[in-house]
Simulated assay, not measured.
Amino acid sequence: MDNIAVKPLEIKIALQKQACFGGAWYHKVMSIEYPFYGIEGTVTLPIPFIRRYDQNYKAKHVVDLNHKNLDVSSIYMGGHASDESDVGLALFRGYLDDQISTGAFVYRPFWRYITDEFEDIGTYDLEKGRNYAATLLSERNGIKNIYAQYHPSFTEYYYLPGDTLKLSLFSPKPNFMQLQITVIDVSRLPYSANLRRRYQMKVPQTFLSPMFSSKGHGTDMPKTYKRVNAIDQVRNEGKEAILTKTEILNAQWKNCFLYYKENNTLFKTL
């Protein structure tokens, strides 16, 4: 989605009240409803000071790799056409000296989608080139809520505080979406540089997710898009957010654009 001209979208539509789903602390910026074709934004990843852990463990570090965290930092985008799809980065566990960590400490890609069509549910199969797993979270009347992520052995898709990335959510064909994460600048923060060196992580690379079903996207159907900074909370989805001392510092959105078409030409608008 590079080399698309930026052109203001000159329309006047009343802003709609945002609906906020319980169980997390977050800042959400949502678009108007319009036949958009995707969203992109450039962001510098924050430093997560996680302070809620299993068994009331008291952390002394930025994150504790050896204890299960109950707060999760996430930076993501989403689109709502017929149903909602979210994509982006969340703080996940990763490999430390060939063993998976107990606590989450690296930002890794995820994509979540709701569908009654192409579901793609399944586990990893690295030998056959399936490097991701897609898990059924819930199902109602044949509508499936699916969560997918890449295998943690691919350390080139570990992103750390201070990395500057361009996130793009777009439709490669009607009724499907895809996430691309492009590396703009690698973090120079001592915390991140030391983690990469100590655990021999590969240099971060551009990531492209598989296509996933998302009805209405890639068509002229009116849609809304969003960008979100969140503190998600383990086993608390849909409930009242739990008070926490966790801090997620210095997330910086450099820009954010929406894709739209005019005379069948694709443009970007702020």
Rank of each mutant, 00 (worst) to 15 (best):
residue 96 L to C: 09
residue 66 N to P: 00
residue 63 V to T: 07
residue 117 E to L: 11
residue 108 R to H: 08
residue 110 F to T: 00
residue 85 S to Q: 07
residue 95 Y to C: 01
residue 84 E to C: 01
residue 97 D to W: 12
residue 64 D to R: 02
residue 76 Y to I: 03
residue 109 P to N: 12
residue 110 F to Q: 01
residue 111 W to G: 00
residue 95 Y to E: 04
residue 75 I to F: 06
residue 76 Y to L: 11
residue 112 R to D: 10
residue 101 S to C: 10
residue 67 H to V: 05
residue 102 T to A: 12
residue 108 R to G: 06
residue 119 E to T: 12
residue 87 V to K: 00
residue 82 S to L: 07
residue 98 D to Y: 12
residue 92 F to Y: 15
residue 116 D to K: 13
residue 66 N to M: 11
residue 115 T to H: 04
residue 117 E to C: 05
residue 96 L to E: 07
residue 95 Y to I: 09
residue 119 E to I: 06
residue 91 L to P: 04
residue 99 Q to V: 13
residue 67 H to C: 04
residue 113 Y to Q: 06
residue 66 N to S: 13
residue 73 S to E: 03
residue 112 R to L: 10
residue 65 L to Q: 06
residue 110 F to L: 06
residue 107 Y to N: 02
residue 77 M to Q: 08
residue 111 W to N: 02
residue 119 E to K: 14
residue 81 A to Q: 01
residue 79 G to M: 12
residue 108 R to C: 05
residue 107 Y to W: 10
residue 64 D to G: 02
residue 115 T to S: 11
residue 93 R to L: 07
residue 97 D to F: 15
residue 93 R to M: 13
residue 116 D to S: 15
residue 102 T to N: 12
residue 112 R to Y: 10
residue 83 D to N: 11
residue 71 D to W: 08
residue 86 D to K: 04
residue 78 G to L: 04
residue 72 V to L: 10
residue 76 Y to R: 03
